[in-house]
Write a protein that binds this DNA or RNA. Sequence first.
DNA 1: TAGATTGTTAATCGATTAACAATC
DNA 2: TAGATTGTTAATCGATTAACAATC
Lengths: 219, 219
Amino acid sequence: MTKIKALPEPTLRRIPKYIHLLMQMKKQGVVHVSSATIADELGLDSIQVRKDLSLAGMVGKPKVGFDMTELVEGLMNILNWGNLKEAFLAGAGNLGEAILGYKKFNDYGLNIVAAFDNDESKIGKKIYGIEILPIEKIANMIKRMHIKIGVITAPPEHAQEVANLMIEGGIWAIWNFAPVHLKIPEDIILENVQLSHSLSALTYKLAEKIKTNDYKIPN
Amino acid sequence: MTKIKALPEPTLRRIPKYIHLLMQMKKQGVVHVSSATIADELGLDSIQVRKDLSLAGMVGKPKVGFDMTELVEGLMNILNWGNLKEAFLAGAGNLGEAILGYKKFNDYGLNIVAAFDNDESKIGKKIYGIEILPIEKIANMIKRMHIKIGVITAPPEHAQEVANLMIEGGIWAIWNFAPVHLKIPEDIILENVQLSHSLSALTYKLAEKIKTNDYKIPN
DNA sequence: TAGATTGTTAATCGATTAACAATC
DNA sequence: TAGATTGTTAATCGATTAACAATC
């Protein structure tokens, strides 16, 4: 078994893009692919693609490129796709519901088996077949069911509290959607999705663009 | 007026974190803040914070730190927060609905004024007061209303198509939630939110962690 | 074989971190 | 004044890009 060092963060973030593209191409019957083709399709540099693939332990053949099946499966393996992990979600609001409904996340290893909320009126109900339980139970159930992944879609004012409960239960990784900087032990994996930050970047760039455009068209 | 060069991407992504923290501290009555305090709270390096603030054109006083009000307002200004821009959303599914319902985005300059879909049964309905219109109309309406921001929450197989329509209408910036690499002219601002990629990074790190943990506890 | 493409080593670039002088 | 904190210049680090030898 080839030993692979932990991937650099930027490489790790590009690999899903490769996989998506390759799955598409594979469906169209392509059997070999070169780094140049991948780079072209994704607007990247072919050297970078080659470097990434090499870091991920993929090998190609000079003049031929990479074997499609081998490459897709290899990359999916590296990212641990298809290896389903049970998860809990806390905060059955708008966004929580959207995530519960998005079954595609199963493909990436996420299997949400229960949701938690503090709203009495929601408890006991089911969303997309997933039962909503009282938040007080989350720590205990994480412990009992050996849940490793917690998804936080609670409102910002409760997010830290919820994270604490998850950590108390012994969670290993948190996927956080609350617009809050969570303070958690550093051995716990934290992946933040801050939609407002992404939006901020967009509006900043838009403002920049409008500014420079105003110069160009002074009328 | 102090001229500020376009901010480096990493700095741009950290500024919202600063703002969130500072708003919180301000609410608690803090009037001055040092780079060290900010860094501490966010788990960053104080030198980095100082560099970021300096890049953003903020000035502090030696021994005192930064004036809270000045700093918050200055940073919000840089990011163009509060400067509301009208936007269209395409794809009124689960995620689209969640975004329409999240009024907080107003604070960051996003004001979604109409949603579009190709599902006959949805058209004409309203979600959170926002009307759903037929997707065919989007290009024309973007043109007529001078809409600058398009939000794509359509399913992946339609995302490129929708992007094309937006571009045809003359959109300036796209906030894309579809798990697709959009091909768009490079002068159009594109901000991708790929939840599945974020999830991929998390499950990869979790798998790494489980692996190393297995070594530690060989039982 | 000739040529295309890989894979690796070296050079460049940009961001982070360190050092330190300026200053309130 | 002495000491804390800013702001800037220089050093380090890591990722991207370039160059090129290996090879199918």
